[in-house]
Write a protein that binds this DNA or RNA. Structure first.
Length: 883
RNA sequence: GGGCGUAUAGCUCAAUUGGCAGAGCGCGGUCCUUACAAGACCGAUGUUAUAGGUUCAAGUCCUAUUACGCCCACCA
């Protein structure tokens, strides 16, 4: 029976292996939930769909790392793991890209027309739509591509229509002219969420509003052109300065339109002049005032933000041009007072960046309150949990103050609203127009739905809803929604609302929110800053595993990640390190077949008892950390265990039994080496799937299955052994002490030295494990001494607890140097001892601290005191009256 | 204006229910020891932002302050 199936290459050729392994996983169907037993509990994540024409950025790399980790972990735990991938049509973003392409071709969307434009967009989607998917594959995403969805697929479009029609029939969707945020460049309405307010330098214009019959009221504005749409001047009703004017009339400058002076408590007497021009057609506050006072609405703008005929002589001018012209004309009339430089918040479109204009427009709205109430209740009741918890507060606040959602967009790329207008103005809501009557035609609604409307259905629409498909029955509700906190409102809240409304179930039980990926200085990544990090460059350079490991170990839930690419390089070295460990283990498997699993605890030597005990604690710890979503800490612990404990200590120690032990010792050691490695590759697989899968293929593998399908390790408490850990720790400390002394005295590393050891209370330990010292700190000969009386003078000494090693380094050590060194050591101990003694001398501590904490301190004190005693007697013997 | 986050080694980050403040990178030194120089070994580096408080015990809990960042909000 051959143990070594394949010869390992010297290093991991990730460029060759990643594609091959991914293809193998996909081809063999391991990404599909059907590989689990029929009765397996499902675990489902809906992938946040990237924009269909987008390219992979670090945010995607982070979500793939996290979601793939969760999926692979649950798959290994035996669940029917399903990660549903897909892409989003991303209405505005995609349309803008295609419009830009048309512009470059010297044409425009208007010129080619709606039908042609959509055809071109679909072509664009076909061309670039596959790109992001391939990039997700390169990151190792173990999603079920057979279940991939696109938001404009027939099935999903059907779900969207179904939802719209249902909500309409429930009286929750209405259409009407309202003041909305209008994006003049995109020529569409956008929702409140799509408007970003940035504090910018601007100007506050002061002028006198002329009153009918003479006199004036001083007012100020940041947008003088809106004067043309004023329908009132408002003052505070209790303001003695202006009170008397309420009920009189003012005249709109230049236009000379007659408007009332009204009193409204909204006016802040302290701000500006204490009087306010009211433009209900172009300002949200003024709109409210207008509603209260039945003021007329005047829209002075066209869809591209040029002024319309209501602006009189300014009609046809751009809004900013008109602003200047009007102001100059007012100056000529002697109405202007001054212009003040101020900083104020300017509303800009999230997409185009242009200034958004509040404008009256006929749009479709969703009455959101009933849905929001359910969404609030679900989180409050704990049926949905948000990680980290602090975002629950943010979520509540948003939903408690939510306004109706403007769901229509004047775009072409998207789900067309399923509404038809009869030739007599009749409105019909349905997927298809009613049957034609003679002489009567139905015109379809031009508008499409906000992209987020379809995204809100994602967890169930991707599984087949509204059809009661087998997938929907088996995999809905999903489990975890993992996404960025920046789309908590845009997406997460809306999925919860829609999910609860249409399926009566929360669409997922946990929301895990990650942060933004920034550069190593914490700056936002942007083209203008020139700090763009392309994840694919990093994947090309180091492979996907190091990038994943870096993102996972560098992030905590809800916090931004500052990506330092030197960490990616370090994790690439970690990949090499575990490669080399595996190389060592597989080279030393021997020719005899080995039993699988670990030998019984009783058959293990001390180092093996130590490493298996440590391994079991690691497994338990990783499990606990995973349960609380602390993936980063889990990854670091596995890394630390493998590199520091397994490689630096156990592998080095194992060489003795492997090379010099008897057959039994060899076999046991081999089984421990393989066992630890096997377990750690499993633990590490969700973090670094490629290299672990590749390494797995070199281990003696009795199942023939790839690692992706291996079971998640269970702890085995029989291997927990605190005594072994303590003994081993003592030996490790002693080895370190000896190395330290060698280094301090600059003994050449190749020079073998002799150690004389007073083994204190552990004579058996040294009898059995003195070989460690030869291997780990190049001690050629060890003699055990009964006590310190026979210790040589010309020697350095190292004490750990009641054990002391004497190193007779005649050429290197002079007595006074050694005495200096020892007294420094002693001083350190004195300090530590006094601290612990003080602690233990405190009755309150002993009485109130947890017993195990007190016990730990006592043990520590005993150890420190024993070391101190050893050093004291050494100093007494060696240094005489020197100290 | 309201809410939230962050502040720990030169840099990037950890630290479980409060229980000896740790990694990596970088830095100094030694070594090509038969898995690994993409490595091994040794070392230096901290008033855990500031000021109080609670506690036997505080990086961790409470209060205030400062700096930076984010979210929400109708001051023209």
């Amino acid at each position: 029976m051959e143990q070594q199936a394949k010869q390992m290459p010297k290093t991991f050729d990730f460029k060759e292996a990643e594609g091959r392994l991914y293809a193998m996983w996909e081809r063999e169907g391991w990404f599909k939930p059907e590989i689990a037993p029929k009765d397996a509990e499902p675990f489902v994540i809906s992938m946040p769909p990237p924009n269909v024409t987008g390219a992979l950025h670090l945010g995607h790399a982070l979500f793939v790392s996290l979601e793939d980790l969760m999926t692979r972990y649950e798959r290994m735990r035996g669940k029917a793991a399903l990660w549903v991938p897909g892409t989003d049509h991303a209405g505005i973003a995609t349309q803008l890209q295609v419009e830009k392409m048309l512009h470059d071709e010297g044409t425009s969307r208007e010129q080619v027309g709606r039908e042609e434009f959509l055809a071109r967009t679909w072509l664009w989607k076909e061309k670039y739509g596959g790109r992001i998917e391939d990039q997700l594959r390169r990151m190792g995403a173990s999603c079920d591509w057979d279940r991939e969805r696109f938001t404009l697929d027939d099935g999903l479009s059907n779900a969207v229509q179904e939802v719209f029609i249902t909500l309409y029939n429930q009286g929750l969707i209405y259409r009407g002219p309202r003041l909305v945020n209008w994006s003049p460049g995109l020529r569409t309405a956008v929702s409140d969420l799509e408007v970003e307010r940035e504090e910018e330098p601007g100007k506050l214009y002061y002028f006198n509003y002329p009153l009918e019959g003479g006199g004036s009221i001083p007012v100020s504005t940041t947008r003088p052109e809106t004067i043309l749409g004023d329908t009132a001047v408002a003052v505070h009703p209790d303001d003695p300065r202006y009170q008397d004017l309420i009920g009189k009339f003012a005249l709109v400058p230049v236009l000379n339109r007659r408007i009332p002076v009204i009193g409204d408590e909204y006016v802040d007497r302290e701000f500006g002049t204490g009087a306010l021009k009211v433009t209900p057609g172009h300002d949200f506050n003024d709109y409210e005032i207008g509603q209260r006072h039945n003021l007329p609405l005047i829209n002075i703008m066209n869809k591209d933000a040029t002024l319309n005929q209501n602006a009189g002589i300014y009609a046809g001018m751009d809004r900013f041009e008109a602003r200047e012209k009007l102001w100059n004309d007012m100056a000529a009339l002697g109405l202007t007072v001054k212009i003040e430089d101020i900083n104020h918040a300017v509303p800009r479109s999230q997409r185009g960046g242009e200034i958004v204009e509040p404008m009256i427009s006929t749009q479709w709205f969703l009455k959101i309150q009933p849905l929001a109430d359910k969404a609030l209740a679900a989180v409050r009741a704990g049926s949905i949990r948000i990680v980290p918890e602090r975002f629950e507060k943010v979520y509540y606040h948003w939903l408690e103050n939510i306004e109706d959602w403007c769901i229509s967009r004047q775009l072409w790329w998207g789900h067309r609203i399923p509404v038809w207008y009869g030739s007599d103005g009749e409105v019909y809501v349905g997927k298809l127009p009613p049957k034609d009557r003679p002489g009567y035609t139905w015109t379809p609604e031009e508008d499409v739905l906000d992209t987020w409307f379809s995204s809100g259905l994602w967890p169930f629409s991707t599984l087949g809803w509204p059809e009661q498909t087998p997938d929907l029955r088996r995999f809905y509700p999903t489990d975890v929604m993992e996404t960025g906190y920046d789309i908590l409102f845009f997406w997460v809240a809306r999925m919860i609302m829609m999910g609860l409304w249409f399926t009566d179930q929360p669409p997922f039980h946990t929301v895990y929110l990650h942060g933004l990926v920034r550069d190593k200085f914490g700056r936002k990544i942007s083209k203008t800053l020139g700090n763009v990090i392309d994840p694919l460059d990093l994947v090309d350079q180091y492979g996907a595993d190091p990038l994943r490991m870096t993102l996972l170990t560098g992030s905590t839930p809800g916090n931004d990640v500052n990506l330092d690419t030197s960490r990616v390089e370090r994790n690439w070295r970690f990949v090499n390190k575990i490669w080399q460990m595996t190389n060592f283990v597989t080279q030393n498997l021997g020719d005899e077949p080995l039993e699988s699993g670990f030998p019984a605890p009783a058959d293990l030597d001390l180092p093996a008892r130590w490493i298996t005990s440590r391994l079991n604690k690691l497994v338990a710890s990783v499990e606990r950390l995973f349960e609380s979503y602390q993936y980063g800490e889990a990854g670091r612990q596995i890394d630390d265990f493998l590199w520091t404990e397994f490689a630096d200590w156990y592998i080095e120690i194992s060489k003795y039994p492997l090379y010099q032990g008897d057959a039994q010792a060899k076999a046991n050691t081999r089984r421990v080496l393989i066992g630890v490695l096997d377990t750690c590759l499993r633990l590490l697989h969700p973090f670094m799937p490629f290299v672990t899968e590749e390494l797995w293929s070199f281990l003696p593998n009795r199942t023939g299955k790839p690692l992706i399908a291996a079971s998640w390790p269970d702890g085995d408490s029989r291997y927990e052994d605190d005594a072994a850990e303590a003994d081993m720790q003592m030996l490790i400390d002693l080895v370190r002490g000896i190395r330290n002394v060698r280094d301090e005295y600059q003994v050449e590393p190749s020079r073998k030295i002799t150690a004389l050891i007073v083994p204190g209370s552990s004579p058996k330990l040294f009898a059995a494990y003195e070989y460690l010292f030869a291997r780990l700190c190049n001690v050629g000969t060890i003699n055990l001494l009964a006590d310190e009386s026979s210790a040589p003078q010309q020697a350095a000494s190292v004490s750990v607890g009641d054990v002391t090693a004497y190193l007779p380094l005649a050429d290197f050590v002079d007595v006074s140097a050694e005495c200096d060194r020892l007294s420094k050591e002693r001083a350190k101990l004195t300090e530590q001892i006094s601290r612990v003694e003080k602690q233990l001398g405190n009755e309150q501590f002993v009485a109130r601290a947890r017993p195990d904490v007190v016990e730990k301190e006592r043990t520590r004190l005993a150890g420190l005191k024993a070391s101190a005693e050893q050093i004291d007697s050494r100093i007494a013997g060696l240094c005489g009256d020197k100290t």
